[in-house]
Every structure is written in structure tokens, then in C-alpha cells.
Design a binder for these strands. Structure first.
Length: 199
DNA sequence: TGCACGATGAAC
DNA sequence: TTCATCGTGCAC
């Protein structure tokens, strides 16, 4: 049995962290959403590596979930949600912000996890509490819609040192129109994080 | 071709 | 509670 020689690492050396695979996203959406908490979102643009620790997410469960965009059916905007897992679904909201999602489950399920807040780790400027501000701070816009999250410039990884997470479950924000679906506890955040958008 | 409406954030 | 601001989806 040989022993692989690893060069010394320091916390925060993202190149040695484990990038999440397609298989990670190809699972139950609630499970993926909860497991995304504490993971590092990485976006490399203009030779700058931006990293944020995911502290708040929301699960959108497919066409039967009346709060999900996919409930409107397959359209030009939502086709990414209907595609395979592990791709980014980025859309503009209220004419001025972008929201960043990761597509989950197998092709056709049209489910996704909305990234709502991150804790700044590296090269993050400005506030990051809320999906619009998160996307702005991470320089995520329409150009990253349908981008492969197993790519080299936009992905999510497991940090080297993982701390235990105290999970909080709450109703999703801004979906009061969705009837009984508005009440379901599909918003998850790290209790102790000061970077959560709302409590 | 027109128009109502957001998975928001900030100001009042 | 109001408003800025515009792409999307659907009505006409």
C-alpha cells in the first residue's frame, strides 16, 4: 500500500478542497439544500478568486411546488431548472438583482436550491445578506446562467475544516402567493451565522 | 406588441 | 409601506 505524498496545505487553499460532483446535486433537493450549508461557493473572474461560505438557502421542489419558477412550466427562462443537475440557474429579479440557484435531482425534475446568503471568505466586497446582494458580491450575473458547476471557474467545494452546523428551518421568503407551499419549512440557515439575511 | 408582475433591497 | 427598474410570460 503506497502513501500519497501531499504537499502541506493551509486552511483556505481552495485548490485542494473537494469540488462537489454532479452526483452531489443529483439527489433529493431538501438534502442537497441542507448539505450546501457550510460549503464554499467559488467564482473566479478576472484572475480574482472570490469565495463565500454558504449560510442560507431555500429549496424549490419542482413543478408541483407553486413557489418554484418551474411551476409555470418549461419556458425559455426555466429550461435550466428542467435540465440536468449541477448547473447554475441565474435569473434577474425586480429588474435590478440576480438570484443564484443550483439545479438538483435528475433531468426533468425541475428542482433547485436558491443561494440566499454567504459569509465572505475571500475577495468579497460589499454586503452578502440576501440573494441579490450575494450574487452582486460574487459577481454572478446572467452570463453564468446554465453554467456547469463542476467547471473550473464557478463551483462549490467542501472546505478543509468543517465545523458542526446548527440548522434552522423556516418558511421561504417572498412566496406568499404560493398557498400552502408558502408555509412549508424549506428555508434553511446556519443558526449562529451573523450573515443570514433574516431571522 | 403591450402589460402586469416578481424567489429583492433600501429608503421613508 | 413604498419604490426603483426590466426581463419574462402571456394576453390581445
Amino acid at each position: 500500500m503506497s502513501v500519497r505524498i501531499m504537499k502541506p496545505v493551509s486552511v483556505g487553499d481552495v485548490n485542494l478542497m473537494q469540488k462537489l460532483s454532479r452526483d452531489f446535486y443529483n439527489r433529493d433537493t431538501v438534502t442537497v439544500a441542507q448539505e450546501l450549508l457550510g460549503k464554499y461557493l467559488v467564482h473566479i473572474a478576472n484572475r480574482t478568486e472570490m469565495i463565500g461560505r454558504i449560510v442560507e438557502v431555500e429549496a424549490y421542489l419542482g413543478p408541483h411546488d407553486l413557489a418554484a419558477h418551474s411551476a409555470k412550466g418549461l419556458t425559455e427562462r426555466t429550461k435550466v431548472m428542467f435540465g440536468p443537475p449541477g448547473y447554475a440557474y441565474v435569473y434577474m429579479i425586480y429588474g435590478m438583482y440576480y438570484c443564484t440557484n443550483v439545479v438538483t435531482e435528475s433531468e426533468g425534475h425541475a428542482s433547485a436550491v436558491l443561494l440566499r446568503a454567504i459569509e465572505p471568505i475571500k475577495n468579497i466586497h460589499g454586503r452578502t445578506q440576501g440573494p441579490g446582494l450575494l450574487s452582486k458580491a460574487m459577481q454572478i450575473d446572467k452570463q453564468l446562467n446554465a453554467h456547469d458547476l463542476t467547471s473550473d471557474n464557478f463551483y462549490i467545494t467542501t472546505p478543509l475544516s468543517v465545523t458542526p452546523i446548527h440548522l434552522v428551518k423556516k418558511p421561504r421568503i417572498g412566496v406568499d402567493y404560493a398557498g400552502v407551499w408558502a408555509k412549508k419549512l424549506l428555508r434553511f440557515y446556519i443558526k449562529d451565522s451573523r450573515f443570514v439575511s433574516r431571522r
